[in-house]
Design a protein around this nucleic acid. Structure first.
Length: 425
DNA sequence: TCTGGGGTCCTAGGACCC
DNA sequence: TCTGGGGTCCTAGGACCC
């Protein structure tokens, strides 16, 4: 068995760090970034973590604490984070032959067989310095023979200052020493539910999971957990994926800034989501055959009557045409809408994707005549909106969009809009 | 009053067929 | 009175991730 070597590079407090980059005055201030609608805390600076503000907590529950300690909050500014992410990733791509961008703030590097003039820890430190110098973002690096162990190595690098942000976990002894220290829920792929069930079987630490019998785990849990056990023992089961696999579904959904009680407003919202989903679909160069629309009241309110429903429709043939999905979605909405509820969220989902032109119609399906002009119209819309911002849209999307999300604490588009370029004084 | 969004994979169970 | 069994396909729901 050839030995693999993976490095996991993960940005520290990524969203919060991005916001701080352009606000040097906030260098030592606790900063949090909020979810859409300014609802939950989704990122925290080091100082904010120290105050005990938990990931995912609703803002209203920590508002007092934040005021008391002068915590500065920002609405999510995805344009900024996506741009900073690209800068970090292209630096990483210059360091290793094969890179998997795993999420907006982390990447796996395949170091298998790479002959460095330096040892692995030195390589990690070099990567760290490069990213720090060129982007201002601090990263931590975990190095190990499997992705699951690299994740844990990264966690160790983040947790213990004296590691200088880099942990080389290629030695078996160090692996077992670290695994013994970590609770089982720190392991990649082991969430809340599995942790509970594992604990009932006496498995509390990552090491105990590693030492469990894979066959027993397979029987009582799943192939996924079995794979995790093998990975913890240094057997690489999860390969590096350089190319993003083509999507299998596209979801567009949002909680509303204010509850919707009016059907016309819901029509606007659904139209908006359809238009976004179809645009993504065309970017993926795919066509979809299956559409789902869903809506629901707030699951947290015990005052409002609860209601949640979804309906789907399969088209005769796949398409990327927004107008076809709009018409179908409005029909589905007619079947879903009930007066008298306070709707908190809705969304649409496209699935069952095909490459344009390969779908085999059924014997009795209406043959859909696709006109080149339809395709060109969609392209024209996408191009105009890409070039000039949101310029044209379908009337059903509405113009006021009173229901749209709250983003009251948005930072400027420092890196993606000329108007918002930071000025050096 | 106020609780995110976008994905993937696996499994159990029903429908259907012979 | 007595009412099979095994395979495949599909879908909904659960669990996980960032």
């Amino acid at each position: 068995m050839s030995q693999h070597i993976f490095a996991l590079v993960d940005c520290n407090n990524f969203y919060a760090s991005c916001e701080k980059l352009f606000r040097p005055d906030l260098a030592d201030t606790p900063v949090v970034v909020l979810s859409n609608n300014d609802g939950c805390v989704v990122a925290r600076s080091r100082e904010a973590k120290k105050l005990g503000i938990k990931m995912g907590v609703p803002v209203f529950q920590v508002r007092e604490l934040m005021q008391k300690h002068g915590v500065v909050a920002f609405s999510s500014n995805y344009a900024l984070y996506a741009d900073m992410s690209q800068r970090v990733m292209s630096l990483l791509e210059s360091l290793a032959p094969r890179v998997e961008v795993y999420s907006i703030d982390e990447a796996f590097l395949d170091l298998t067989g790479v002959d460095f003039s330096q040892n692995l820890t030195e390589f990690g430190l070099t990567a760290r310095q490069l990213v720090q110098k060129c982007t201002g973002i601090t990263v931590c690096v975990g190095i190990a023979p499997t992705k699951t162990l690299a994740k844990l190595a990264n966690h160790a690098a983040k947790t213990w200052q004296k590691t200088r942000g880099v942990v080389d976990l290629t030695s078996k002894e160090r692996q077992r020493k670290l695994l013994a220290l970590l609770p089982v829920d720190e392991v990649w792929g082991i969430g809340g539910k599995l942790t509970k069930r594992l604990q009932q079987l006496g498995v509390d630490t990552a090491l105990q999971l590693a030492d469990a019998d894979p066959k027993f785990i397979r029987q009582h849990f799943s192939v996924m957990v079995e794979r995790t056990v093998r990975e913890l023992n240094g057997e690489s089961c999860i390969a590096l994926e350089e190319m993003a696999p083509t999507k299998k579904q596209i979801v567009s959904s949002r909680a509303f800034g204010e509850r919707i009680t009016d059907k016309q407003q819901m029509r606007e919202a659904i139209s908006e989501y359809i238009s976004r989903a179809c645009k993504k679909l065309r970017q993926e160069q795919q066509e979809a055959k299956y559409l789902t629309v869903f809506l629901r009241t707030s699951p947290f309110s015990d005052k409002d009557a609860p209601y949640s429903a979804s309906k789907s429709v399969e088209l005769d043939s796949p398409t990327g045409d927004t107008r076809i999905f709009l018409a179908k979605a409005m029909q589905l909405l007619d079947g879903l809408w009930l007066d008298g509820y306070r709707y908190a969220k809705a969304g649409v989902m496209l699935s069952d994707f095909y490459d344009p032109g390969v779908h085999q119609p059924g014997l009795f399906d209406e043959p859909l005549i696709k006109k080149e002009s339809d395709h060109q119209l969609m392209q024209l819309i996408d191009n105009l909106n890409a070039k000039h911002g949101k310029t044209i849209w379908f009337a059903s999307q509405g113009t006021k969009q009173d229901w749209s999300m709250k983003r009251e604490l948005l930072s400027p588009a420092y890196t993606t809009n000329w108007r918002d370029l930071p000025v050096a004084k």
